[in-house]
Amino acid sequence: MAAGGDHGSPDSYRSPLASRYASPEMCFVFSDRYKFRTWRQLWLWLAEAEQTLGLPITDEQIQEMKSNLENIDFKMAAEEEKRLRHDVMAHVHTFGHCCPKAAGIIHLGATSCYVGDNTDLIILRNALDLLLPKLARVISRLADFAKERASLPTLGFTHFQPAQLTTVGKRCCLWIQDLCMDLQNLKRVRDDLRFRGVKGTTGTQASFLQLFEGDDHKVEQLDKMVTEKAGFKRAFIITGQTYTRKVDIEVLSVLASLGASVHKICTDIRLLANLKEMEEPFEKQQIGSSAMPYKRNPMRSERCCSLARHLMTLVMDPLQTASVQWFERTLDDSANRRICLAEAFLTADTILNTLQNISEGLVVYPKVIERRIRQELPFMATENIIMAMVKAGGSRQDCHEKIRVLSQQAASVVKQEGGDNDLIERIQVDAYFSPIHSQLDHLLDPSSFTGRASQQVQRFLEEEVYPLLKPYESVMKVKAELCL
C-alpha cells in the first residue's frame, strides 16, 4: 500500500493539533497551500530580480507567473513527485505547466533550498508574528487579574506546605514575570531571523556568478533584492546548502521555554482548584465526569500541561538535527523538520489560546482563602504575639514557653481530632496574655502579614508589564474561544 493518505478522510490519521486544537490561522501558515504558494512567490521574486539585473526574462513571463501564483494543481504535483521522487522539481514542473512561456526560467540558477529553506524562514517569521500578540493578550488578562487582587491576602506555599502570606495578585505576578520573559525572547528570536537568500547549491553562489558572467556586484544585488522582497532586513552571508540548523534550535528553545512557563502556571491553577481557592472557567453544560456528576475538573489547565510537556520535548529534535548536518548538509534534517517545526508552533498556539481562555474567566473564592488563612495564621502570628507581650512588660522566655504549650495543644486538636485551630481562643482565655487581649485582632490582621506584596504588584505592572504590552494595544480586544 502506498504511503500517505487522504487526510480529510475519517479513515486516515490526522494530527489532533490540526484537527482538534490549533487555530485556523496557525494551521494555514503550515498548510501545503501556504507552503507551495510561497515557493511560487519566491520563484517570481527571483525572476523579477534577475530581470532587473539584466537576464533575458520578459515582462510577459513575469506576468504569467504572477497570474498563476494561486493556480496550484495539487493532484498534478503529487503525481509528479511520485514520478520524480523530488518535491521541488515536482512543483517546478507543475508551475511550468500553467506558465508555459515562463517554464524555462522558473528556478533559474537556484537549488531546492532556495524555495525550501527560504519558505521555512518566512513561515517561522509569520508563525512567530501570530504567537506574539496571543502571548501579549494572556499577559494582559493576567495583569488585569493581578491588579484587581493585588491586596487580597492568601496563604503562600513553599514545598506545598503553608508559608508566609502573600497576595493573590502577587502570586499571579510570578506567572506574568515568566511570560514577559517569554514574550521578550519570542520577539528577540523573531527579529534575529535572517533570510537564507540566493546562495546556490553549497552556499557559494557559483551558479549565479556564472549567470551574471562573473559580476560579483550583481550577485550581491540579486541576494539583497530577493531578501528585501521577502520582507527581511538581512540575509546570511555564510550558508551551506541550507541555512544553519542552529536557527531551528533557537526558535524551538524559546517555544519550549514558553511551554515550561505555561505548565507551571496551569499546575498552580490545578492545585488551587483542589484547594477550592480558584477555578478555571466551567461552562453551564460542561460535564466533569461521566460517573461523578459533582466533579469540576480543571480540564483546560490539564490540557495545557499535557501539550506543554510535548512542546518542551520537541527542542531535542533540532538539537540532534543540527549535530548531524555533515559538511554542507545531509538530508537527516528533512523529514524531522517537516514534523517538529509545525508541531512546535501548533502546540504553542494551542496552549496560548487555551491559557487566554482560562485567564479571561478565572474565578476566585475569597471566603475559602480566608478560612485557610484562619487555619494557619495563628501559628504564624506567634512571633508577633511574643513581641507584643514583651512590649507590655512580659518575659520573652516565659511567653515563648506559654505559646509553645498552647500551640501544641491547638495542633493536637487540628491533627488528632480534625478540629479547627483554636490557638487564639486559648490565648484569649489565658490570664497571662490579658495585657494584649485587646491587640489580638490587630495582630491577626492578614494584611499585616503580606509585606509589600501589593506595592510590588503595582510597581511591576507599571514599570515592566504595561510598557512591554504597549506595541500590542491594537490587538488586545480579541477574545479566545474554545470549541473543545
Rank of each mutant, 00 (worst) to 15 (best):
M387G: 14
A3H: 14
R37G: 05
H97I: 09
L155N: 04
I123W: 03
R33I: 11
R371M: 01
L346E: 10
I237P: 10
G96F: 13
L222Q: 01
A47G: 04
I139H: 05
E70Q: 05
V368Q: 04
E343L: 03
G393S: 05
A235M: 13
W45S: 13
L314E: 08
L142W: 12
H159G: 01
F232P: 00
F460D: 11
M181L: 13
D120E: 09
G214F: 15
A78V: 09
F145L: 06
V315F: 12
F327K: 00
N336R: 01
F345A: 08
H7R: 14
V390W: 07
H93I: 02
Y21K: 07
K246N: 03
V88S: 10
Y365I: 13
E64D: 06
R83M: 09
V457D: 07
E464M: 07
Q409D: 13
L131M: 06
D32K: 07
K477V: 15
R338T: 01
Q320W: 09
D182T: 02
E283A: 15
V88F: 14
D430C: 08
R194C: 12
D268G: 11
E81A: 00
W326M: 15
Q456L: 14
T313S: 14
L484C: 14
S395H: 10
F345N: 06
G116V: 07
D191A: 11
V368N: 03
T38V: 08
E228Y: 15
D144Q: 15
R303K: 10
V168M: 08
S151Q: 15
D223V: 05
R188A: 09
T313F: 03
L271F: 06
D216T: 12
S474A: 13
K187A: 15
E463A: 13
M292R: 00
Q416I: 11
D87F: 07
I57N: 00
I424A: 11
S447I: 09
K75C: 15
T350Y: 08
K224G: 11
R194A: 13
D333M: 01
L211D: 10
H437T: 10
A47D: 04
S454F: 15
V92Q: 02
L42R: 03
K147H: 13
K470C: 14
N421I: 12
P378Q: 02
V115K: 03
T450L: 07
F327R: 02
N68W: 09
P467Y: 07
F160T: 12
N384C: 09
G200R: 01
C173K: 02
V219F: 04
R171K: 08
V363G: 08
K218R: 11
A392W: 15
L69N: 12
S23E: 15
Y432K: 11
T202V: 06
D117W: 00
A342C: 00
L128W: 07
R396C: 04
V414Q: 03
V92D: 04
E462K: 11
Y34T: 06
Q286V: 03
S261I: 03
K295I: 02
R338P: 01
P378W: 00
S261T: 10
K276M: 06
L183H: 15
I287A: 10
A22D: 10
D144P: 12
E302S: 02
C305G: 10
A230Q: 00
C172F: 04
L44K: 04
V414E: 03
L131A: 10
A453P: 01
L183G: 07
P366G: 05
M380V: 01
M181E: 12
R190D: 08
D87E: 14
A47I: 00
T94A: 13
L307A: 11
T350G: 09
T119C: 13
T382G: 07
P435C: 13
D120L: 12
D216L: 09
S19A: 14
G156S: 10
V115I: 10
M476N: 15
Y114H: 02
D332L: 02
M292I: 01
G393A: 08
L469V: 13
N421Y: 05
D6C: 07
G200F: 03
V324Q: 09
E376W: 03
E25V: 10
G96R: 03
E283Y: 01
E48L: 10
G54R: 05
G104K: 13
S306P: 06
A77Y: 06
L142P: 01
L461R: 04
V115L: 10
E401F: 12
V364W: 09
M389Q: 09
L406W: 06
K233M: 13
I403L: 09
L135E: 12
G393P: 06
R270V: 00
K276G: 07
M292F: 06
D349I: 06
L222H: 01
E383W: 03
C27D: 14
K170T: 01
K224Y: 15
F195P: 05
A90W: 08
E283Q: 15
A3S: 12
